[in-house]
């Protein structure tokens, strides 16, 4: 029994890591008032870039860095349209997802079925990794640990620092922040770019660590789950971790429970059911107010609007 639980848990954490990375980024973007529905597109661009660069250079670190950069570049498209041009954020974000899926398919064609010469290896922590049972939790790759470390770090930044107050104020009342000399546009750009970086990392995690291969559309809706988790977490990094591992766990269980007669499709569907439900709920004004959605979310800011 213990073996079963440990094995589910040790599989759950990596299964939830891409979701966690993406959600942490989206939490920050939305805290600044910008909804980015392009997570799926940024993530898959991270995945294909990470795979391609790792494949070409045989260097995983370079691959991961390139994936982050790809995520940032993708997010800049959304930032330019939604912040500078003040286009509807939903439209811009959806376009970004479609763009990412399309380009990644095109770029990735040559890599389909190719084995990756190197992959991100698990780190071996002396002593800890050799413990019985518990040792299983100290044999993950470095991205898993980074994602876990980011949770308290991003929480601290958000709630306990001056910059955190600035970020949250921009998402709640940009006019107030502007009147206090805050550069609203800069803050929003940085937040959206951070979201892109994290989505790129999440994509790289998938293609060079979790399942080292390139498969077209390999993010398989993870970006949409990130959107739901962001709301689900009430824009909080710690709850984002809980949510990510919960959905990661569902993913693991769907294989474990199959022999017991529970169809995999049912569990497979679950994250998306929750996503739809959350998206419906968030469109309702009263609900938005109750759970504390950033008040200026989806509202472009302009100083001289009369």
């Amino acid at each position: 029994m213990i073996d079963f639980i440990v094995s589910v848990l040790t599989l759950t954490i990596p299964a939830g890591t891409a979701l966690l990375l993406g959600t942490l980024g989206e939490v920050y973007a939305e805290r600044s008032g910008v909804l980015n529905l392009g997570v799926e597109g940024m993530m898959i661009m991270g995945a294909v870039t990470g795979f391609a660069v790792t494949f070409a250079t045989k260097n995983v670190v370079l691959g991961i860095l390139a994936a982050s950069l790809a995520g940032i570049l993708m997010s800049l498209i959304h930032a330019y349209f939604s912040i500078t041009l003040r286009v509807n954020q939903v439209v811009s974000g959806l376009a970004l997802t479609m763009l990412g899926l399309g380009i990644s398919g095109l770029l990735g064609k040559q890599f389909i079925g190719m084995p990756l010469p190197v992959r991100l290896q698990p780190v071996h922590v002396p002593v800890l990794s050799d413990l019985p049972i518990l040792g299983e939790f100290f044999r993950f790759n470095i991205l898993v640990y980074i994602s876990i470390l980011l949770v308290p770090l991003l929480s601290f930044f958000l709630y306990k620092t001056n910059w955190g107050i600035v970020l949250r104020s921009v998402g709640e009342n940009p006019a107030a922040a502007d009147a206090m000399g805050v550069n609203v546009f800069l803050v929003r750009y940085l937040a959206v770019m951070f979201g892109g970086l994290m989505a790129g990392l999440a994509g790289a995690f998938l293609s060079v660590a979790y399942a080292p291969a390139w498969i077209e559309g390999m993010t398989a809706g993870a970006g949409w789950i990130v959107i739901a988790l962001t709301i689900f977490s009430l824009y909080d990094p710690t709850r984002a971790m809980l949510g990510a591992y919960l959905f990661g766990g569902v993913r693991v269980l769907q294989f474990r429970l199959q022999p017991l007669g529970i169809p995999a499709n049912l569990l497979n569907m679950l994250p998306f059911l929750v996503t739809i439900l959350v998206l419906v709920l968030i469109s309702e004004q009263a609900f938005r107010r109750r759970i504390g959605v950033p008040a200026a979310l989806m509202q472009p800011y302009s100083r001289e609007e009369k």
Binding site: N162, W163, S169, E172, A177, A179, V182
Partner: peptide, 28 residues
């Protein structure tokens, strides 16, 4: 300037509203 329509972040505390944009760094 105190605007006619107050420019305050409703969900934040008085302290958070007052320090907003001051101080140039991580520490609060």
């Amino acid at each position: 300037m105190v605007h006619q329509q107050f420019r305050l972040v409703q969900t934040h505390t008085v302290v958070e509203n007052i320090v907003l944009g001051t101080g140039n760094g991580l520490r609060f």
